[in-house]
Design a protein around this nucleic acid. Structure first.
Lengths: 225, 225
DNA sequence: TACTAAAAGTCATCAGATGATTTGATGACT
DNA sequence: AGTCATCAAATCATCTGATGACTTTTAGTA
């Protein structure tokens, strides 16, 4: 478990309120005590209470209406789940995303439209090499390709989750592992497109799996140092 | 242009900051200007700046360190992605979760500990039938089993994503499709455990895939009505 | 050089005051 | 009675000033 490290008053006040809300002390739609009362309840100043409330508002648990009061919108934080995902280790996130790549390719082989294939071939051609326009731009083009594969699966939920992982992962990669991961292989990408276009789900899945394995291996090596 | 909504200063200040962060004005890990400077930049008082910063902190974009400064943690709000996931159709969410089941079983076959197998066998035994304690309780026990399979994969990110989908899906199922989905088959569940225990990833994946296919088919029929 | 102590910079918190908005009560008018 | 305007209370929104706590940098000393 994580240590209750140095926690500022506003955060602990917010946590207290969150607990009360989760415990159902105030029903959804009901009004919570006014700021002066919360000051007494929580034993902190008004500014701190406001910061705590502001945090819960931005998390979608509370809503403040000037002149009226502060109301409960929900009893649990809907974003808490993804927050926990973000706190899992980079390796697990990477593996989960790689898994999406594999299965999305499988679905894409079964469901792709002709337009999907056209798009994939175009992105593959545009992808080029790292020499064209710098590393950052190349990574963006590479991501666009993989995202298109997921999109060809026809499953929007998978696209959104994929985007989520991509955002979470690139944040970390950009700040810690910049440039230490192996170059994606251009030939392997072409095989992915062909496999999807062939309509063979197992071949498509295998092509992505083969491509992802060495990258994941390298990531494990980097993280174990 | 948006409606001339009345927006509190703290929210618009937070939005301004969010834009600057998204635009990359301050890199991830970098320090943003101190509170006094933000007061000048945003044209609001210090308390309001603090509320804006607090909102972004609770959204995971910023981090404040007393005595040091305020630092950028991420350039985009990951929770926004979550909302988009929730808005995708139930069928896609179900399929994405089923996919997690399949691939988690594959990983579980490779990485499971002896304790995992003990747990799976226990949950399988406890699972019983719908007759024991009512439908709600049975669904909970069934979910506990499937979650344990994902947990045996050793990938925490997958567990969290699985929980997220489960929560999102059961919200909808509970309100719209109550009782219209086919009963999960007890024999199929036993085969999943055996396949995982055997250590054969393909067999494990296939066992879950075989189990999920008819459920997804039935869901498609229900949703297409 | 290496270590320590002071100083500066920054966020954390408090207290008081005023403004803006909503809500409910009051009362006049139809 | 019913409707509407007005007013007062409640509540959140915001500003200002001050003090404390923590971190980082700098200066001084051995």
């Amino acid at each position: 478990m994580k240590q209750p490290v140095r926690t500022n008053l506003a955060d602990s006040a917010a946590n207290s309120l969150r607990s009360e809300i989760a415990a159902g002390r105030w029903a959804v739609g009901e009004r919570v005590p006014n700021e002066a009362t919360l000051v007494d309840m929580l034993g902190v100043s008004r500014g701190t209470v406001r910061e705590a409330v502001r945090a819960l508002v931005s998390q979608g648990l509370l809503e403040t209406r000037q002149g009226s009061g502060t109301y409960v919108l929900a009893t649990a934080d809907p974003a808490a789940a993804l927050d926990r995902v973000r706190q899992t280790c980079l390796r697990d996130q990477w593996e989960a995303r790689a898994l999406l790549d594999v299965e999305a390719a499988r679905l894409a082989a079964l469901r792709h439209t002709p337009a999907d294939i056209v798009t994939l071939r175009r992105l593959l051609a545009e992808r080029g090499t790292v020499a064209d326009g710098g590393r950052e731009a190349f990574i963006r083009r590479d991501l666009a390709f993989h995202r298109a594969v997921v999109k060809a699966s026809g499953n929007q939920a998978m696209v959104e989750i994929y985007d989520f992982f991509t955002a979470a992962i690139t944040d970390v990669i950009g700040s810690t592992l910049r440039g230490e991961l192996p170059e994606p292989n251009g030939q392997a990408h072409a095989e992915i497109v062909e496999a999807v276009a062939s309509g063979d789900p197992d071949r498509a899945a295998a092509s992505v799996r083969a491509f992802m394995a060495p990258v994941l291996l390298q990531l494990d090596r980097l993280l174990s140092r």
